[in-house]
Amino acid sequence: MELTTIWFTLIAVLWIGYFTLEGFDFGVGMLLPFLAKDDTERRVMINTIGPVWDGNEVWLLVAGGATFAAFPEWYATLFSGFYLPLLLILVALIVRGVAFEYRAKRDDDQWRGRWDAAIVVGSFLPALLWGVAFANILHGVPIDADKEYAGGFFNLLNPYALLGGVTTLLLFLAHGALFVSLKTDGAIRHRARARAVPLLVAAAAAGVAFLAWTQADTGTATSAVAFVLAALALVGALFSARAGREGRAFAGTFAGIGIAVAGLFLALFPDVMPTTLAGGVDLTTTNAASTAYTLKLMTVFAVVFTPLVLAYQGWTYWVFRKRISVDHIPSTTSSAPAPTATTAP
Results as ranks from 00 to 15, higher is better:
Glu2Cys: 03
Glu2Phe: 09
Thr5Ile: 12
Phe8Lys: 03
Thr9Asn: 04
Val13Ala: 09
Val13Asn: 02
Leu14Asn: 02
Gly17Gln: 03
Glu22Lys: 01
Asp25Asn: 09
Gly27Glu: 01
Leu31Thr: 02
Leu35Ile: 15
Asp39Trp: 11
Glu41Asp: 14
Arg43Leu: 03
Asn47Val: 01
Val52Gln: 02
Asp54Ser: 11
Val58Thr: 13
Leu60Arg: 05
Val62Lys: 00
Gly65His: 00
Ala66Asn: 06
Pro72Arg: 14
Tyr75Phe: 14
Thr77Ile: 10
Phe79Val: 08
Pro85Met: 01
Leu88His: 06
Leu90Phe: 15
Ile94Arg: 01
Gly97Ser: 12
Tyr102Ile: 05
Arg103Lys: 15
Arg106Lys: 14
Asp108Arg: 07
Gln110Thr: 09
Arg112Met: 05
Arg112Asp: 02
Arg112Asn: 03
Arg114Gln: 08
Arg114Asp: 03
Ala117Ser: 14
Ile119Gly: 03
Gly122Arg: 08
Leu125Pro: 03
Leu128Trp: 10
Leu129Phe: 11
Ala135Leu: 11
Ile137Asn: 06
Ile137Gln: 08
His139Phe: 07
Val141Ala: 07
Glu148Asp: 12
Glu148Trp: 07
Gly152Lys: 05
Asn158Val: 03
Pro159Phe: 05
Tyr160Ser: 05
Leu163Gln: 01
Leu163Met: 02
Val166Asn: 04
Thr168Gln: 06
Leu170Phe: 10
Leu173Val: 11
Ala174His: 04
His175Glu: 13
Phe179Ile: 11
Thr184Glu: 08
Ala187Gly: 10
Ala187Phe: 10
Ala192Asn: 14
Ala196Phe: 14
Pro198Asn: 09
Ala202Arg: 07
Asp217Ala: 14
Ala221Glu: 13
Val228Glu: 11
Val235Thr: 08
Val235Gly: 12
Leu238Val: 00
Leu238Asn: 04
Ser240Gln: 09
Ala241Gln: 00
Ala243Arg: 14
Ala243Asn: 10
Arg248Ser: 14
Phe250Leu: 13
Ala255Asn: 12
Gly256Asp: 06
Ile257Ala: 06
Ile257Thr: 10
Ile259Cys: 04
Ala262His: 07
Leu264Phe: 13
Leu264Pro: 00
Phe265Ser: 06
Ala267Gly: 11
Phe269Ala: 14
Val272Gln: 04
Leu277Lys: 03
Leu277Gly: 01
Gly279Lys: 04
Val281Gly: 05
Val281Asn: 07
Asn287Asp: 13
Asn287Glu: 12
Ala289Ser: 12
Leu297Gln: 10
Thr299Trp: 08
Thr299Glu: 15
Phe301Glu: 12
Val304Ala: 03
Leu308Asn: 00
Leu308Asp: 00
Thr316Pro: 04
Tyr317Cys: 07
Tyr317Phe: 13
Lys322Leu: 09
Val326Gln: 07
Asp327Met: 07
Ser331Asp: 15
Ser331Ile: 15
Thr333Ser: 06
Ser334Phe: 13
Ser334Asp: 10
Ser335Gly: 15
Thr340Gly: 01
Thr342Leu: 02
Thr343Cys: 00
